[in-house]
């Protein structure tokens, strides 16, 4: 395992807590990416464990909303993000909820865009500002945000993964990590791929034309 010196001397961030503030911002930013950077009309945050206990005390609420609006960890507007969201007409609510067997710093986000699309995700802040997205739109996932990621929801059929990887190879996208999970044999499956370089939009278009592919989400690097 090689760790960047800038992960040690970093993140450059608005305080006070790398896990409760910078990590929360990154999770919000993940939702900003998952919803395709569309304008949000309403968002609900379901806070688990330590996230719900010290919500405003660590600015976790402001950091989540700032990330959702696309702000970075070092953006000084994080302090006023709740007011900014109000000005933009975004309805925001926070609720404590037991999300089960997850990391103590976990949040579930449900966001509805101005065009009426609904997205959900669950993300954990695992320490030092590092995060892990563990569920996207109801399906298990695993993304740290350190690499551009493509998430393909498809039917569990022979050869689908090979088609995904060959389209990526055609666009010269090198795979760093790859994971696949399915509900049961022949049912909905999800393939997540982290790549070295950003994934072009044509990849999404070409994949969505294929049989058995239900949905493709490309997430830019957000951490």
């Amino acid at each position: 395992m090689n760790i960047s010196m800038f992960d040690i001397l970093g993140p450059v961030m608005i305080g006070p807590s790398s896990s409760h503030t910078a990590g929360a911002q990154r999770i919000g930013k993940a939702m900003y990416m998952i919803s395709g950077k569309e304008e949000i009309s309403s968002v609900k945050f379901y806070l688990h464990g330590s996230f719900s206990h010290t919500l405003s005390g660590h600015g976790t609420d402001r950091a989540l909303v700032a990330g959702l609006m696309g702000m970075d960890a070092s953006d000084e507007r994080i302090r006023n993000s709740l007011e900014i969201a109000k000005e933009r007409g975004i309805q925001v609510s926070f609720e404590p909820q037991d999300l089960g067997d997850v990391h103590p710093n976990t949040v579930k986000i449900i966001a509805v865009t101005k065009s009426g699309k609904e997205y959900s995700m669950i993300g954990s802040s695992v320490g030092g500002g590092e995060v892990e997205i563990v569920e996207i739109n109801g399906t298990k996932a695993k993304s740290s945000g350190k690499y551009p990621t493509i998430i393909v929801t498809h039917i569990d059929r022979l050869g689908v993964i090979s088609k995904i990887s060959s389209i990526l190879a055609h666009h010269e996208v090198n795979i760093v990590t790859m994971s696949n999970s399915r509900e049961k044999k022949g049912s909905t499956a999800i393939t997540m791929i982290e790549a070295d370089h950003s994934i072009p939009a044509e990849v999404k278009e070409q994949l969505e034309e294929l049989d058995y592919i239900k949905n493709v989400v490309i997430i830019e690097k957000f951490a």
Binding site: I8, L9, G10, P11, V12, M13, I14, G15, P16, S17, S18, T21, A22, G59, R62, S74, E76, I78, R79, G128, G129
Partner: peptide
């Protein structure tokens, strides 16, 4: 204190010990 006031800092290695 800048950290606790939601000011800009560099985590080194964390915000609490910055």
């Amino acid at each position: 204190e800048v950290n606790a006031s939601m000011g800009l800092i560099v985590a080194a290695p964390t915000a609490g010990a910055c």
